[in-house]
Design a protein around this nucleic acid. Structure first.
Lengths: 203, 203
DNA sequence: GTCTATAAGTTGATAGAC
DNA sequence: GTCTATCAACTTATAGAC
């Protein structure tokens, strides 16, 4: 978050934290102002309304979500494909385990999108479809390499999206599942019956 | 929902609908009273507080969630196992497509559980674990019948739980995925390499 | 059981001084 | 840019009549 104005950035950061802790609806501008150390009307100098603040924060958050950040397709080769798909998933799970502010806030926008608020709905599509398309691209790459069956790539990609996304949700409510193993099952399903090929022909 | 008192039931039903439409936080007791056709203080005769109303409704909702309702293990045989697992999933997806009030409200409680409100957190565990355990039981049954590999049953069951649950979430925000195909990929993953056995020796 | 009236507090937002 | 003072509108909740 590179912002010119100091206070502007502080307000956004504080809103982010408080939204995660209490939810958007139950976070008032007074609470934010108090934490930042300014008066409530001062917020209105930087943001037109609470709604605008919520909006701007969502735009900032969206920038942080990026499929290529977690799964860099160009690094996947015929030999490392399965291992790398597993490892990248593990890493994503581990990242969520450490910072639960992010998925919490994203969840807040998710629930807003699930209502009739169209503006969030459409923007959330971009987020999830980003992952769905990313996985589809990755699996297509795998099919070209010959490590993944070429059929039903889209369905498989979406299945992976469902799993990795819901792992985050379940961690949020404190469910103690073995998420690495769950990801392994989902990932393995993409390789089909022919998945058990040469394992370590590397170097 | 079989309740003795008329107004009591009306309040609960109206709360259910309004919670789904506007979220719990943005649904006031005035809104509920207005829709029911009574005055706001009348609600306090039936419920100690808004919190108690939220609590009671959650208990009612929990009764509606029941794994055996969607997947009745005793009906799964060696011959129909894969087909039935698919069909039951399809039916669940179809049910969600028709009534989106239910998942919406459940989502409201989910997000409450993801905060620090311990009472919801623990009760939500019961809900999801109900499905996780149900799938585990079902797959164990499948392993006994010889249609499912006996290893990693728990991980597979949890993977199915992640998928079926998140399909609901994605439908909620209006994502137009092919959910039947997604479920097929998840289900097929449980059968492993040996899954391609006799298909129609039935009748 | 349901009402009117009202308390006590919070909210998002604005006016206007500095 | 930030403040104090203030607003109208809402909230949950209670007192007490019928």
């Amino acid at each position: 978050m590179i912002v010119i104005n100091e206070t502007y950035a502080k307000i956004l950061e504080t809103a982010y934290r408080l939204f995660a802790e209490h939810g958007i609806d139950k976070t008032s501008l007074s609470m934010i102002a108090k934490e930042v150390g300014i008066s409530k009307p001062a917020i209105y100098y930087h943001f037109l309304s609470k709604d605008m603040l919520i909006d701007v924060l969502f735009e900032e958050i969206k920038k942080e979500i990026d499929f290529p950040k977690s799964f860099s397709i160009q690094d996947y080769t015929k030999d490392n494909f399965e291992a790398k798909l597993l490892a990248d998933g593990y890493r994503m799970i581990e990242e969520q385990r450490q910072d639960d502010y992010f998925p919490r806030v994203l969840n807040e926008y998710m629930i807003r999108g699930s209502r009739n608020e169209l503006k969030y709905e459409q923007r959330l599509h971009v987020v999830i479809e980003g992952f769905a398309n990313g996985f589809e691209e990755l699996l297509t790459h795998g099919a070209k390499l010959g490590v993944i069956p070429g059929e039903r790539i889209t369905a498989k990609a979406h299945m992976l999206t469902m799993v990795i996304d819901n792992i985050g949700n379940c961690m949020l409510i404190g469910l103690k599942f073995n998420y690495k193993e769950i990801w392994e099952e989902a990932a393995k399903a993409c390789f089909g019956a022919k998945g058990k090929q040469v394992k370590k022909p590397l170097s």
